[in-house]
Amino acid sequence: MKALRLGERQVVWIGLVLVALLVAFSVLAPRTFPTSFNLLNLVSDAAILLLLATGMTFVIITAGIDLSVGGVLVFSAVVAAEVMEATGSLALGALAAVVTGLAWGVLNGVLVALGRIPALIVTLGTLGMSLGGALLLTGGVDLRAPAELNLGLGLARWLGVPLIVWICAAVTAVLAFTLARTRFGRHTYAIGSNAEAARRGGVAVRKHLIKVYGLAGLLAGLAGHLSLAKYGITGVSAHSTDNLQAIAAVVIGGTSLFGGIGTVAGTVIGVFIPVVLQNGFQILGVRPFWQQVVVGAVLIAAVYADQWRRRTRDR
């Protein structure tokens, strides 16, 4: 058997945890939990967060962080809603959301890579700016999505599965391949592992960082549009903990906060564990607040496992 890399081994473990949760809830609530209706609910809840977490995976593998994703999501949704209101075109709205997200992401990337400001501070700043900007644009009153979007893309299904889920799954699959098999992914790992070595190896480190933060912003913009379609409202105040949820999912999925290690597959599992816990607790009548407690504990355990493996490895 070929030696598994650190990140891959954690994916196996955390995958087993997810399977154990699914089995446990299925046994405890056999008539309500493992139904197609409930499982579709699960993936619908997870889909949009999955986009944010996938972008976050790339950022964290470069040893960075992006706290701004929730704010960028909301700002992009507001811009999309206003563009659709003004032009009546749903396509222009989608484009506006994606471009707006990309612009925030590139701003993050430029400040981190060229301005040499710590990513934590840059993205904390742009989180405040984008959330505040969204409130300025809306005057603090949530905008509604056009009915054609909310009843169209928001409800559309293909093979019984919501179109939004298909979109998020397809984007995630493409990015999983990009990270694992392409030069773009290889350079992402190299920068997180040893940025100076990557630079001396001829990797355009700054340009690559701008692209990675740009990608995370673009995905947040897309998530903003999909969220607008799904919920029919910009939800300015509903996304203040998106960044922490995304970071938790990425870290639970075996991506190292120190960079250089991680997979999108792990992140997918890391997104589902909190969602499955919440759903299962609800069905079992456990107070839903327990979900936060348990996810917090899983998060700490995941980081502890990563630290411990690194210590044993770096003799």
């Binding site: 650190l6 290889r186 790992y189 070595a197």
Partner: peptide, 8 residues
């Protein structure tokens, strides 16, 4: 310092 990426 060898300039190697330890995780690769």
């Amino acid at each position: 310092d060898l300039a190697l990426c330890a995780d690769l």
